[in-house]
């Protein structure tokens, strides 16, 4: 590897050995994904239903719900995440070992959903990196299973040669937002008419957006 040889593939090009190794490693990884169920609200109930008899997540190598983040491979964030819970979510993500993946289950975890309010995180991708978003309010168990299968598909395409790019983590990033201020502003911008609504009940007008002078510099 790394030796320039015109007759052989160059550095970084997958060779026979690495692709076979990738295949075996990915096969093992994707069929024994242990989920870390970070369930908070309605979606958690559907997650429980997925684990129960009718849907049976165990068929996909997820027999064991790993309630300890240190033995988990895939974080399923199911339900709304208020700002008060955000450091807990980040802490759990930091505690998980590589390789790890993250699923954002449901509208609230993915974008804040209907809760465009003062207390809610507008999408957990501002806090942790997300691999698969599952839409729905809440998604059906089939939706969750489909999302987990998409994670499996994603693993299938990974290569050990890209390890540094895929799995490296900055220790200084622990406990900090994943996104910078501008990206957070982009991601959490109001959508639809969620904040254009105000009270029209004959009371004082209160703008939905905070007064600019109240914001911290």
């Amino acid at each position: 590897m790394g030796v320039a040889n015109p007759g052989l593939p160059g550095a970084g090009t997958p060779a026979f050995l690495t692709t076979r190794l990738d295949f075996v490693v990915n096969w093992a990884r994707r069929n024994s994904l242990w989920p870390m169920p970070f369930g908070t609200a309605c979606c958690a109930i559907e997650m429980m239903a997925s684990a129960a008899s009718n849907f049976d997540l165990a068929r996909f190598g997820m027999e064991r719900m790993s309630f300890s983040p240190r033995q988990a491979d895939v974080l399923i964030c199911a339900g709304r995440v208020p700002y008060k819970l955000a450091p807990v979510l980040r802490r759990i993500w930091d505690q998980m070992m590589q390789p790890k993946w993250c699923i954002s289950m449901g509208a609230c975890a993915s974008s804040g959903g209907v809760f465009d309010v003062y207390s809610m995180v507008q999408g957990i991708d501002t806090i942790v990196p997300v691999d698969v978003y599952i839409p729905g309010c809440p998604p059906r168990p089939e939706g969750l299973i489909y999302g987990l299968m998409m994670v499996q598909e994603k693993i299938r395409g990974e290569s050990l040669a890209d390890h540094a790019a895929l799995r490296a983590e900055d220790p200084l990033g622990a406990g900090r937002p994943r996104a910078g201020d501008e990206e957070v502003a982009d991601l959490t911008g109001p959508f639809g008419n969620s904040t254009d609504q105000n009270r029209v009940s004959g009371l004082v007008e209160t703008g939905a957006i905070g007064r600019p002078e109240d914001r911290l510099p």
């Binding site: 908070t40 609200a41 339900g79 709304r80 208020p82 008060k84 309010v117 003062y118 809610m120």
Partner: peptide
């Protein structure tokens, strides 16, 4: 308060 979603305000 770890799931405070401000229903009443909304």
């Amino acid at each position: 308060g770890y799931l405070h979603s401000s229903f009443e305000k909304l």
